[in-house]
Computed example of a mutant assay.
Amino acid sequence: MGPTYRRVGEYLAAEPVRISAVLRLPLIVLIGVLVWIWEVDHWLPEVYAAILGLYAVAAVAWLVAVLRGPVPRWADWASTGIDLVVILALCLVSGGATAALLPVFFLLPISVAFQDRPLLTAAIGTLTAVGYLSVWVFYSKHDDRMGMPNMVYTHFGFLVWLAVATTVLCFVLVRRQDRVQALQAVRRQLVSEAMQSDERHNQEIAEGLHDGPLQTLLAARMQLDEVRERSPDPDLDAIYETLQDTAAALRSTVTELHPQVLAQLGLTPALRDLVRQFESRTRIAVQAELDDVGKPDSQQLLYRAARELLTNVSRHAQASTVSVRLGRIGNRVVLTVADDGVGFDPAVVPQYVSDGQIGLGSLLARFDAMGGSMLVDSSSGSGTRVTVTSPPEQS
């Protein structure tokens, strides 16, 4: 089924983890710079260097992993928990370096504040404040000359306040996210109802054309054929050909309005029939790899997308070959239409809409509203590849 296209929604869901992974690298650099500038004497310099070095290597590896592949749900709290453990370990083995590392404690709660888990944010903030105080207690017991400065309690109070503030901030962001998702759900419902109404309307028109004008036209053609048999006439032959072409065009219109093969057999047979018609009409070779996907909920939208994309190829692409692929990835159906034509700039699609050419722009809007996606990859002279991903199927 070709390359797996990750959903935009899944990417955005993992965005906080990726942001944390990026911000972690300059934080490690700042830790190294702070200790180097302060020229502290470490209690365990080899252990300190080993921990910081392994932390840096792990941070780079983690950044590469989250940028390349899917991010598990536990990654957001696990990565931040490791940050806290490493900072505590560095403090415990670095003696006077503790003073240089203390500002880092104030950065840890902020690193999770933009995630969508208030309880996780509260837990990290609380652990950070307790860890800060524990480090000072450890050194006050280890070095009698150090003691417990009053500023420690002030800093501890600031960290507690920061934990509360970031938790409230995260809670507010989650509530706003829930509101946005609710509005998106309403939007999807409205678009779905509009599409169903549109489909019912098309079906009614198709049935009306099939049972009315098309049948009348076919009857007239049969009567004319009988007249031609009794009295051959070139003029009658011309009229017969015109009636035959009109009937074929009307039948094609009925099929476009409401393809019976789609309703009866499902998406894959309907696309095979669509590809066959495209090849016979345009003489463009099509390489089709169509897996059986049954009758997905969004088959009307996917069929419409395939028809619109193939129409665009025949009108604008100047292509010699076209590739059409259909298959499932998880609970979604993925359709890919690629050609070796002249290509175009995808940035002009919004301009097409403003100019009244709403075909491709309408598809983009419909898939976005329904929770699917439509990725257009094209450039001048390099052909075009459009990957359409359906909304998730209801389990």
Rank of each mutant, 00 (worst) to 15 (best):
G2Q: 11
T4C: 03
Y5S: 06
E10G: 10
R18F: 04
A21G: 12
L23H: 08
L27P: 01
V35M: 13
D41K: 09
V47H: 01
A50R: 13
I51K: 06
L54M: 11
V60H: 03
A65I: 04
W77D: 04
A78N: 06
A78R: 13
L88A: 14
L92F: 13
T98H: 03
A100H: 01
I110M: 14
V130L: 12
S134P: 01
Y139G: 00
K141Y: 06
H142A: 14
M146Q: 12
N150P: 07
V168N: 02
L173Y: 00
L183H: 04
Q189T: 11
L190V: 11
Q196F: 05
E204L: 13
P213Y: 09
A219K: 14
V227D: 01
T253Q: 12
G266K: 11
L271K: 06
S280I: 02
E289K: 14
P296E: 05
D297E: 14
L302R: 14
T311N: 12
R325P: 03
V333P: 07
L335G: 07
L335H: 11
A338V: 05
V342Q: 13
V353H: 07
G361D: 08
G361Q: 10
D368K: 05
M370L: 15
D377K: 08
S378P: 09
G381M: 07
S390C: 08
